[in-house]
Design a protein around this nucleic acid. Structure first.
Length: 290
DNA sequence: AACATTTGACCCCT
DNA sequence: AGGGGTCAAATGTT
């Protein structure tokens, strides 16, 4: 069993490293054909990594609702889970429809004890057609009515999800990536000013790091954690090596909190300060991975 | 008609 | 036992 874990970890690191290299090779000036090819390679690496996380390392099963044992009383392990905060603009106040690149169907809503606002439950639209078991919960923040706390559970296995994130980037105007870059730089400035933040309680069986780190961007925070034993198994700080110039900092901490500079809210006025109409702006996503 | 949402009931976990 | 999460029938929307 330990050998299996070690093999999975090794394979995971290999795949992620390869994926990182592909991202580093990304050249916005390259031909669309070359970009497509590279994107396919990146997707392939991510797919393999996710498969390893799903099947080999964690549970030795493909079941995203794994059982603890084979006894008569079969209990489910907690699914992978991570949370983020999404700030909406005023016009969205009445109907939260944050587009995170996935297609969701609402299947329930509950009033939560001690919470002012009800919690809404969503599942992937492709649950029936592609057996995609990803779900998410959305609850309006008590502190800030413009902030929604979104908790994702389970990883998408549907085909749409495998490429939608990347495609959503392809479909964006090129300068949007630059806007994000500038926002992140702005955030780093804010970070240096020690803006306080409160990590959400979250836990995970594994994590969809890449997918989340490159989501279509909104004013949102994302917190991700590994359970202590998983940190031992994955040593994610070794997988996601950081440096002084990092834009995204993945680190394994004693408190099991992995945070990203993306994770901080910024003043919406930042958007106004940015020049979003410069046609010469370049896409540079590699920095988010190196 | 097909798909999405609502909502009360039920199940499972702590 | 109680709360959170899910189911599924009813209802609404496209």
């Amino acid at each position: 069993m330990e050998k299996v874990k070690a093999w999975g970890k090794e394979s995971l690191i290999t795949e992620l490293t390869q994926g990182k290299e592909f991202v580093n090779q990304f050249d916005p000036l390259a031909s669309p054909k070359e970009c497509d090819l590279l994107l396919e390679k990146i997707l392939s690496s991510l797919d393999k990594s996710l498969s390893i996380l799903n099947c080999e390392v964690l549970n030795g099963t493909n079941d995203p609702f794994p059982l603890r044992d084979q006894g008569q009383k079969k209990k489910r392990k907690k699914m992978l889970q991570w949370s983020k905060q999404v700030r909406i603009c005023g016009t969205e106040l009445e109907s939260f429809n944050h587009d995170d690149g996935y297609s969701w169907r609402k299947y329930g809503q509950k009033n939560i004890l001690g919470a002012i606002h009800p919690r809404a439950y969503y599942r992937c639209t492709h649950r029936n057609t592609q057996s995609c078991l990803a779900t998410k919960q959305v609850q309006k923040s008590e502190q800030d009515p413009l902030v929604f706390e979104v908790t994702y559970k389970g990883m998408h296995s549907c085909k749409a999800s495998q490429s939608s994130i990347f495609l959503s980037y392809e479909n964006q105007k090129p300068n949007q990536c630059q806007i994000k870059k500038q926002k992140v730089e702005k955030l780093n400035t804010i970070k240096e000013e020690n803006v306080p933040f409160t990590p959400l309680k979250c836990e995970s069986q594994n994590a969809q790091f890449f997918a989340n780190s490159i989501e279509p961007f909104t004013s949102e925070s994302m917190y991700l954690s590994l359970l202590p034993n998983q940190e031992e198994e994955f040593e994610m700080d070794k997988i996601f090596q950081s440096s002084e110039s990092d834009r995204i900092v993945f680190s394994s901490t004693p408190t099991s909190i992995i945070e990203s500079p993306f994770c901080r809210d910024w003043d919406s006025s930042v958007d106004d300060q940015l020049d979003v109409h410069d046609p010469n702006l370049m896409i540079d996503i590699s920095e988010y991975f190196t």
